[in-house]
């Protein structure tokens, strides 16, 4: 198993296609931060990232039916505590740390919450081979324990850098690198990639 390889360049995020993640500094906070102005800012900040959060939660809980409830609770928690959000901080990272906590809570409540992989939504795969690979990757993700699975999807699906994942999950960067190296090694074997 190749676990000692350096992955300095992997600290760079795999950018998610879509809008730039907004900062609170992009918006003028009103004096009445608990009022309607704050709510408007919150929904404006949420709009570009809600699909990304929703997909992260769906995948992290193996497309369980509970994903919608977890997403709703994450957004409501963020809305409720939006006043505690630091100006100038990255809203996306803050929101993901809330979503991450909600998913962890879900894992604690339900020790096993998954559905058969046949129910994984149809991938936008352009070939049967690619479709099979997508299923293999998700099958592998399902075998991961909750914490590595969250790290896996934060890196490969949400496109966060290792530093950002550390901020979101509270894990040390070394642990995240270890998890990703293991995932890489396993997926390399599954997908028939050579080490060269």
């Amino acid at each position: 198993m190749k676990t000692d390889s350096t992955c300095a360049d992997t600290t760079a995020a795999l950018n998610f296609p879509g809008a730039r993640a907004p900062h609170a500094g992009d918006f003028e906070m009103s004096q009445d931060e608990g009022g309607a102005g704050s709510a408007t800012i919150f929904w404006e900040l949420l709009a570009p990232v809600n699909r990304k959060v929703y997909n992260f939660i769906r995948k992290a809980v193996n497309f369980s039916q509970d994903a919608d409830d977890i997403f709703q609770e994450s957004v409501l928690q963020a809305f409720r505590y939006f006043r505690t959000f630091r100006r100038g901080a990255k809203f996306e990272t803050w929101l993901f740390s809330i979503a991450h906590n909600e998913v962890r809570k879900h894992f604690r409540r339900a020790s096993k919450a998954s559905v058969p992989l046949d129910e994984v939504p149809a991938a936008a795969a352009d070939s049967a081979r690619r479709d099979a690979l997508v299923r293999e990757v998700y099958r592998f993700a399902e075998t991961l324990r909750p914490r590595p699975r969250l790290v896996f999807f934060l890196f490969y699906d949400s496109g966060f850098s290792i530093g950002e994942i550390s901020e979101i999950t509270g894990l040390r960067e070394g642990n995240i690198k270890f998890i990703l190296n293991q995932a890489r090694a396993n997926l390399r074997a599954i997908m028939g990639e050579s080490d060269e």
Partner: peptide, 12 residues
């Protein structure tokens, strides 16, 4: 891997 993972995406 990222390409494969992101192949599955849904709208809220």
């Amino acid at each position: 891997i990222a390409g494969l993972v992101r192949n599955v995406h849904e709208q809220v």
